[in-house]
């Protein structure tokens, strides 16, 4: 896992606690600063659940308003972002329930469907990350499509663990599942992504003989 740059680190608990104390004491505008680091994970989690940009944005706004209205109830036991994400998750589930588009149990199921094929794509060698290729829109699109194709319970975990780089504990708390379930789902999600992406990403490798060669 790459270490996030210092400016990407979540704010400290002390900063959050002080911010919340001052907001509740009347400095309401500080809420803008408090919520800013949560915007991206909130949107991504809701996009993962709702799979629609406009709905995810509306639900994100509703989430943030609910966070503000319920700020007094935040006890500081969890990280603030974790609490916010659990509110986002409930908001997303509420939207889905209203839309009647899903089974109630699919997100919360602790016993995952293990019948999928998690065998990796076999390549003889792939040692370089085609970072430069990220500038090319096609690679970004390939990665997005692969993630969007994942079953929902795996997609949520990938978004929080690998994209937002949250730890296992925080991911489990935000999604309301056990840490064991986070690890199992992440493993399967990565296996599915590797299987889907590794053969396609060959075209984006730096041009050098031997990279991305298929096993004989």
């Amino acid at each position: 896992m790459p270490t996030p740059a210092p400016n990407m680190m979540p704010p400290t608990r002390e900063f959050e606690a002080e911010c919340i104390r001052r907001i509740l004491a009347g400095e309401k505008n500080l809420f803008h600063d408090l919520i800013r680091p949560c915007e991206r994970p909130v949107y991504l989690l809701l996009f993962s659940l709702l799979r629609n940009k406009a709905a995810a944005e509306d639900a994100a706004q509703e989430t943030v308003i609910k966070v503000y209205r319920n700020l007094r109830n935040f006890r500081g036991e969890a990280q603030f972002r974790t609490w916010v994400l659990s509110i986002a998750r409930n908001e997303g589930l509420g939207w889905l329930r209203k839309a009647g588009s899903r089974r109630e149990d699919s997100l919360d199921a602790e016993i995952d469907d293990s019948t999928g094929d998690y065998t990796p794509a076999i390549l003889t060698s792939w040692r370089e990350v085609p970072y430069e290729a990220l500038e090319r829109k096609e690679l970004g699109a390939l990665l997005r499509q692969a993630i969007e194709k994942l079953p929902e319970i795996y997609r949520n975990v990938v978004l929080l663990r690998d994209i937002e780089e949250m730890d296992v504990r925080e991911t489990a708390a935000a999604l309301g599942i056990t840490e064991g379930a986070v690890k199992v789902r992440l493993h399967r999600a990565r296996a599915l992504l590797q299987k889907d992406l590794a053969p396609k990403l060959g075209g984006f490798a730096p041009e050098r003989k031997g990279l991305f060669g298929w096993a004989r």
């Binding site: 790459p2 792939w126 990220l134 997005r144 993630i147 690998d162 296996a191 096993a215």
Partner: peptide, 24 residues
């Protein structure tokens, strides 16, 4: 095991690539 080395490298690279903030 060349195969497992490649599976490990490619999985690790997929993890690194999806973490890029430009993807989403």
């Amino acid at each position: 095991c060349e195969i497992c080395s490649a599976v490990l490298d490619s999985t690790r690279n997929v993890v690194v690539l999806v973490a890029d903030k430009r993807v989403f």
